[in-house]
Structures are given as C-alpha cells and as structure tokens.
Nucleic acid binder design. Structure first.
Lengths: 207, 207, 207, 207
DNA sequence: CATGAATGAGACTTCATTCAT
DNA sequence: TATGAATGAAGTCTCATTCAT
C-alpha cells in the first residue's frame, strides 16, 4: 500500500462516457456513504453500485481517498453556491435583513443532504483534504468580514475578523445542530423560530 | 442493520495488576489516537504501546470500539467534572457573571486535552458512541436550562429549552473553534477578548 | 444460537481462470483434509496449497465451512453417480441379484477415496453440513424404498420405509467398516465373502 | 504450543477435594460439549463452568485433550457396563433370546446420553484417543465372538470373527441411526418394532 | 479503455497454556 | 495448592490496488 496515494482526479474525463462514469462513481460513493456508512464503502462495492468495474474506478480515481475527496468537493460546492448567492443578494441590505437571510441560508445549506453532511464531517479529517475544506471556511469568513466592513458604520466598534469568527461560529453551530439533531426540530414553524432567535442573537451582538 | 458488538468493559479489574493494565490500555489508546490518528489505532498497536499483549487487551475490552468508548468516557468525564463544578458555583450568580464563568469554563474544558478533543470530535465514527456522548450533551442542556429557569425573572420571556439550545450551541462552538483553530488564538489576551465577546453575545441574547 | 455463516459458493466462476481457481481450492482442501486433518485445514494453508492467495479463496468461498461443504458435495456427488446408476441397472432385477449389486456398489463407493471418506465421516463438525448430507441420505432411502415397493410381492409383508431404514443402515455400516477398517480386509476374496454375507443377511431379512 | 501434550491425568486425585474438582471438570466438559459444541469448549470456559480456575484445571489435566479423553472414557465405561452385564446375562441363552437382549441393550446404550454420544463420535478422531476407543470396540467384538463360538452348534457354519463383524456392524448401525436420527423414531412402540426387526435380521443371518 | 480475477498485508479476535502472587 | 492475569501464536476474513486478458 503506497503511503500517500495521490488524491487528484487522474484525467479530465474529456469524453462524454468518461464523464458519465465519473459521475456515477461519485454518486455511488455518496450513496454508499449515506446508506451504509464509511466502513462499507469499499472500492469494489463502489464500483459495483456505480455499475462499472474496479479497474475503471482506478482509471478515473487514483485512490479511494480521491473518490471521497470528490464527494466532499461536490457537496461543498453545492453549499457554496447557495452561500455565495446569498452574500451577493445581501451585500447592500441592512444588518437585520442580511443576518436573517444568511441564517436562513445556513440552515438551507445544511438541508441539502444532511446525512451526507454528517458523514463527511466525520470523514474530512481522514480524507487528507482538510486544506480544501478550510479554503471554503476561509472564503466564508472573508465574505462575512467583507460584509461587516462594508456596514461597519451601523455597528458598534469591533474588529471585523473577530466579529466574523463569532458570527460564523454561532450561525454554523446552530444550523448544524438544528439539522443534524434530527426530526424533532424540523417543523416549518420551529425553523422560523430558530431563524428569529439566531438573528436576534447575532444582530444584538453586532450592535 | 449492523451487528452491535458490545462496548462496555468486559470485566472489572479487581486486582491491582489488572487495574494498571486497564489504565495502560486506555492511556495507550488515547495517545495513539492523538499521535497517529484513528486509522493507526489497531488493537495490536494499542496493546503494544500499552506494554501488554493483545490477549490482555481482550481480557478487559471486548472490542476495539470498547476501548475507544472508554477513552471518550474518560475525556467526557474530565470535562463534566469542570462543568458540573462551574454550574454549582454559578447557580446563584447574576446572569452576566454566570455566563462569563461558564464561557470561561467551556474554553478551559476544551483545553484539557485539545488534541484528543479534536480527534474525538472529528475522527471517531459516531456510530456506536452516540449514546454515551448524547448523555453528556443532555446533561449540559439540562444544567443550562435549570439555571435559566431559576433566573427567568432577569431575562426576557423565552422558552428555557430553546434558550438552552441556543446558548449551548453558541458557547460550545466558539470554545471549540477557539481551541481547535490552533496556536494563533491562544494568547492570554485573546482568550480574554473571546470570553468578553461571547459573554456579550449570550447575555445580550438572553436579556 | 450460532450465527450461520453462509456455506454456499460466493460467485459463479464464469471465466476459465476462475474455474481453475475454484477447482484448485476444493482439491487443496480435500488433500489437506486427508493428509493433515481438519485442524490443519486453515484458510491460509488451503490457499497456499492451491497456489492462490487467501483473497482469491474468499472471492469464491465465503468461509472455510463453504470450502468443506464443497468437498463434501463433490465426494457425495461422486458416490451418488455410482449409486444412481446402480439403482437404474437394478430396478427390474430380482431381489437377490439386486441386493448383491447394491452391496457391491456400496463397497465400491466407499472405495472412491477412502481416506477422504473417513475424514468426512469422522472428523468434520456436523453442524452446518447436516442439510447437504441429509439430502443425499434421503435420496438413498427413497431409492431403496422405491425398489422395495416395486418388488413387494417377492417379499414378506413389511413397511417399506422401515425396511429401507434397516437395509440402508446395514449395508452402509458394513461397507463403511469394511473399507475404513483398513488394509486387513481388502483382498479381492475377502470383499467377495463380505458381499456374499451381506447379501445373505439382507435378502434373508426381506424374505 | 507443544506438539503433543500428554493426555493422561496428572495425578491420582488422592484427596477428596481433588476428586470433586476432577469430577466437576469432567462434568463441565461434557455439559459444554453437549450444550454449546466443541468450539465453545475452551479450557477457560470449562474451568469457569466447573467453578474452578484455569490454573486448577491444569493441575489435574495436562491439556484440553486429556479432558476430552476423560469424558470419552467416562462415557464409554458407562456403555461398557451395560454391555458387559448384558453379555453375562446372555451367555447361556439361545440365539433368538440373546440377540434380542443385545439389540435392546445396544439401543439403551445409545440412549445413555445421545447428544454426548453424537459429539464424541465426531471428536474422538481428533482427540488422539482412537486407541482406547478401539479397545472397547475390540472388546465388543471379542464378546460377540465368544458367544457365537459357544453357540456355534445352533448356527450354520460360519467364521466367528466374520459373523461377529457382521453382527456388530449391523446392530451398532441400527442402534446409532435409531437414536441419533432424533425424535421421529423414539416412541416405545417404534423401538419395539426396531428391536424385532433387527433381531429377525441378525438371527436370520446366523441360522 | 474496460474487465474482474488475483494479490497479500494487515485487521480483529480467540484460546491453550504459563506463572507470579 | 489455588488463582486468574498475562501471553502470543495462529486463525479468519477484508479490502485497496494491480494487471493479464
């Protein structure tokens, strides 16, 4: 077993069939991860579920890690699409409105695929892709910080980096716990209440 | 779906030698988890590091899971000792003072063994240990809720369970991120700032 | 009570190479059973003798039991080929001739691979293989019973199932003991005498 | 692990407590063999069930094999007590009566502890005690042969050794199959029928 | 390019036996 | 002599990865 197998996709999947295969593999990995857990996600099983041979799997992904990395990436990209859009929307909105929107998006983002989210949260450290994931984290902090600096005059005096850290930590945690803690808190109404509360907490903090 | 191997210790260590062995095994597990990661924590390696034979390992722990469970428990117990003491101290203090103390304790608790904490939080497969961990989580929520109910007259009207959820999520997240984000935020002064900020956020929210 | 690991082959050997591997594994198992006994028949050793890797073994057989089951089956199938042919031959023969032929075949059948036969009879844990073995046993009883019913008019009045039980037990035991008791009783002449005696016993019983 | 550990009892169990311990160990072994199978009969488990420590087990039995051997011996002795008594009773009886009694005893003997009998039949080859067991087998053949020689004038001309082989094989097989085939054939009446039939077969053969 | 048979290191676990107390 | 903790060889089985076809 090679100590550090590469984790970047092997080729550009230039042809159509290739792309379909790659997609099938990533999808199969995600599904197995969610439905059967990390332990069961062997490369043979993944290839099987994807409907291709192990050989083909290794044609496109140099290692199992690379496959998991691709799943992580796909999921994070989906989240980031929501998040980036929300920040664009919100750039000129007043604090209260902006925060409310961002909190809502945070919860929505955790709803994209909660089970996958939970599994990936566990697997990321093992996947050797902390760096990529931290890039997303940094991006979010930067977005928040940019918003805060832009609206600094409507807030109390506070270091923007520190405030960003506080806000991101808080919102992320509440969204995470809300969604991952399962069915008990998922009613429409409950979500609305949580958005209200979180907004109140963050806005109160910033002012 | 999954077979559930037991995760409770196999026999009580009655003699002195036994207790030393058990202790050595748990300690070795924790050390390997921290220094080499979950993947490397094989039963043979654990026994090796503990200076005993695999046979002895299985004399006291019915599975690898049970060993990890013991580590989790030991760590959570250490945290809970701090936390319970803090709540006892704080029971009659006014909100501001109480929150400040609890935030401080949260950060201290994450400092008990930050590396182990990180591993346990990130790298341990949740399945199988959920029960143990949730028990502690519930206890903390209950403690916070009890405090809030006791001091309800000094706060705005708010559902105690909901408020507990908000406060625990927030404080826990900030403490977690503060400690786990590594060396950059660990200065005495920085910690004080973070305690101030978190206290302000939570107190502002409750009033 | 006991978990029941599967004992049926894991996948059909579709390609030629596969079939050779499967064959080699079953053959190796039989050889080790005979030459070194059940205890020595570890999966690693079997794979080794078969000239393949353990991995390949588990590609085709889900457990050690399954391998043993395959050996049993192969042996029983070989026996049953003789036995079925003999019953076909004998269907219309008069009792004396028929019994003589069947006794002879019973001894021949035990000669197919006497050492393997002994091991299978004596040393294989019954649990798990009972089903397969009983199927053959039932088939033999049914064949005998069918013959007896067909020739009922040449015999005394007797329950065919009971008579089948008596005849099969007797013939099987004598053939078994004859062959397994080793070299001392294997002379041509001795076999003839034993066939005579057994025939006399059984025919005398039926008439 | 020593290649060939001794299988004879280590000491004479001269004292009373010793004898009780030895008895408890043999009994525990038999019970585990019957109730949980050979696989579960580990020395630790045996000691546990016997209510003594493993250390004590090895005080009295030099190996697990020796323990199994003791069980085999105890069981065979019990059988042989019946058998010897029966032959004594039968020595001067006419053939028909004698055979009937011996067949009955054979079935009774198999009833002493059928489950243990079945397990032991499997384990004897592994136990390295074939020799002792064959001694019993020889004894039985000798007893039958002696009877046959004594009553030779009431039979057709036949080699006594051969006739003994035929009779023992037949009676043993029928008794074995009758008892081991389980509940379906155990009614009082059925046993009587089987005794009748077996007697008829054997007597018919001898005359 | 695809296939899937083959590989083999290594993980987990058991158990007969020894030996310090 | 009894105890039971400790040992470690050995067994079963999995799975990431390679490579002949």
């Amino acid at each position: 077993m090679a100590r550090k197998p590469p984790t970047t996709p092997r080729k550009k999947a230039s042809q159509q069939r290739s792309r379909a295969t790659v997609e099938a593999l990533v999808e199969a990995t995600a599904r197995i991860l969610v439905r059967e857990g990390f332990e069961k996600a062997s490369t043979n099983r993944i290839a099987d579920v994807a409907g291709v041979s192990v050989g083909s799997l290794y044609q496109y992904f140099p290692s199992k890690e690379a496959l998991v990395a691709a799943v992580i990436d796909r999921h994070n990209e989906a989240i980031m699409r929501l998040v980036r859009a929300a920040f664009a929307e919100v750039a000129d909105l007043p604090i209260e409105k902006a925060v409310r929107r961002l909190v809502t998006v945070a919860i929505e983002a955790h709803h994209i695929d909660p089970d996958l989210h939970r599994i990936l949260a566990e697997q990321i450290p093992r996947s050797g892709h902390l760096a990529e994931v931290e890039a997303y984290s940094h991006e979010i902090h930067a977005l928040v910080r940019a918003y805060l600096e832009r609206h600094r005059k409507d807030m109390r005096k506070i270091d923007p980096a520190l405030a960003a850290f506080m806000c991101v930590s808080t919102i992320e945690a509440i969204a995470h716990n809300t969604v991952l803690n399962g069915a008990e808190m998922l009613s429409e109404k409950m979500v609305k209440v949580l958005v209200d509360e979180t907004t109140r907490m963050v806005v109160g903090y910033l002012r």
